[in-house]
Design a protein around this nucleic acid. Structure first.
Lengths: 348, 348
DNA sequence: TTGTATGCGTTATCAG
DNA sequence: CTGATAACGCATACAA
């Protein structure tokens, strides 16, 4: 069933049928009625591919994320999806497994499929030529969660540093001076040797933490800043290593909910009690944070809204409007529950 | 940059350039080299929309789920995505918020965009005309997680009944005779009045449970079968109601991980201890199940594999091959941890 | 092996 | 307001 069929059935020209069906141009009421009736009768459905071809618009946006299985992106995805749907857009979702090569391919393929815009959570802050090309060639692009300093594209994420600072100060207020940070970020085995890191959202956490430390006059100990904690085993090793230090941490900040989960698992295996032995604060107020023992103090992030905002900014860009700002950060907040306690006597 | 540009640059006809670029038909090595070089020089990228238009294939599959934010679908999505990518397919993801109308629209729109196939987790077992149409019109369709009795389309899910039966028997083995089942399924306020339910995956759980009960000679108590437990408040109400019964349950089976979370939350508020006061088994071995207090006994489901299998079955269908089977069920397993205990003395 | 001409289903242009 | 006709970018039957 094509427009031609409908036109013939309605006794009008293709152009008229097309106008009536597409709801544009000028069509007499009578002609429109005949066309619509014919379309209904024939069960006509437009071929969106053909339509896209000469409008140049596909009513589709591409979303490229590292791990859709991760609750963080799942929720952001939901926000993107809801906002996009409201505007009549569909979403092509590509999961890169945090692999830059896969990201490069994905971006190219999505452009080949003529998506109207792109939302990308960049896997790396270093390999960014492909995104720069996209941006410079005028394709609407919004960076999700992570920003790239050298790329003036719009980025939408969470203003995490202030909350990280607040979390750190909350720890210091309970007497903690040996405060560790554990992240799953891949650093090719290298130890911490200064900012920035490869992923801005992790950098921002650390920036806030270091600021909180400095303000309270606590010296920064590079040996307490740890990466590569992905997976239960590696995380267990990182925690065991940290605890074996001559001056072990009395508090640990956990970079994301997956790290938090693995750390709690390691604690259980090692017989560590929170907050008796170690105090803990995790980034991201995941749903299960309230049922851990004890309920976990966390930095809550408006992830769904980040998704909504990212999509809305992209829509602005696609309409040719100026973005609200080149870097949009939504506020995070410290949600105090019971995983912070005073420093254990034996550790003081 | 179009094929025409490349052809001109390479000094060949459009058709030759098209063949060289598309990697089909017969092209001399020399011509191919010239075309590829020209394409490279001009930065040519194919317009996949145009390509799709006359091949009839879009290399895209549509996936329609109720809630991408839900870890279950997030993981299944990952499986689908991985399998699809291996075969060179992209995915258009639509979230329906478990709304049938949204599902109907989504299916129609995806077809308009000429997806090559569809994977749908049906929101309802009753409103299925749209899916029947899709199937009957010959479009490759795979049902995810939930099957529809009257629809002979391929469905891929988990063989949950045997595991539900095993879970029930494990409960009975510890002396439980008052065993409840709590689900988030919407039933318009109606109480349980027989099978099947609106969602086959929930029906299957109940079938297994009832079977386990019958086999062990325990009478079925309709008042212990509860629905509508979605959200923390409603779940709290359901639990409070259950516990206020003259003969309250000593064990509860939780239909999914979200229900489990809300029930644990309600327990905490009500001062109920697991398994001292109530024993618990939850469906779906969500990542945090191992860190609850105590670690939770669960029915583990191979969700990622369900996603992979669904995508692979769809690929078979799209290739015109017969499906492996019309109903594919992957095995579930009872993972025993510590949330099942003997019946409390006061309740016996 | 290569080139020519035509079709895919729309929208857009321009007379009428 | 309507109709014929030309794009859109590519694939493909057919001829050379």
């Amino acid at each position: 069933m094509t427009v031609a069929d409908v036109a013939r059935e309605a006794g009008v020209a293709k152009a008229t049928a097309s106008r009536a069906l597409g709801g544009y141009g000028a069509v007499s009421d009578e002609a429109r009625d005949r066309v619509l009736a014919a379309a209904e009768a024939l069960g006509y459905r437009p071929n969106e591919l053909a339509r896209s071809m000469n409008t140049g618009k596909s009513k589709t946006i591409g979303v490229v994320v590292g791990d859709i299985e991760n609750g963080y992106f799942g929720l952001a995805m939901r926000g993107i999806s809801d906002a996009a749907k409201r505007a009549g857009y569909d979403i092509i979702l590509v999961n890169t497994s945090e692999d830059v090569e896969a990201e490069i391919d994905a971006v190219r393929l999505l452009l080949d499929k003529r998506v109207d815009g792109l939302i990308v959570a960049p896997a790396s802050a270093y390999r960014t030529e492909h995104l720069r090309e996209v941006h410079q060639s005028g394709h609407p692009l919004v960076l999700l969660d992570r920003r790239i300093e050298s790329l003036p594209a719009v980025s939408v994420g969470v203003d995490i540093a202030p909350a990280a600072r607040a979390a750190t100060r909350a720890l210091v207020a309970e007497g903690h001076r040996r405060i560790a940070f554990v992240s799953a970020l891949g650093t090719d085995g290298e130890r911490y040797s200064g900012l920035p890191l490869g992923v801005s959202s992790v950098t921002d956490r650390l920036v806030g933490i270091l600021q909180g430390l400095e303000e309270t006059g606590i010296p920064i100990s590079p040996e307490l800043i740890r990466f590569e904690a992905h997976g239960a085993e590696k995380t267990h090793a990182v925690i065991a290593d940290l605890l074996a230090l001559s001056e072990p941490p009395t508090a640990i900040l956990l970079s994301d909910s997956l790290v938090a989960l693995n750390v709690l698992l390691a604690f259980r295996e090692l017989g560590i009690k929170v907050p008796r032995d170690v105090s803990v604060v995790a980034f991201d107020d995941v749903d299960w944070a309230a049922i851990t023992d004890p309920p976990m103090t966390v930095v809550s992030q408006p992830i769904y809204d980040v998704g909504v905002t990212a999509a809305e900014e992209l829509l602005r860009l696609m309409r040719g409007m100026a973005p609200d700002a080149t870097t949009l950060r939504l506020p995070a907040a410290l949600v105090e529950r019971d995983s912070i306690g005073p420093v254990a006597v034996s550790a003081q």
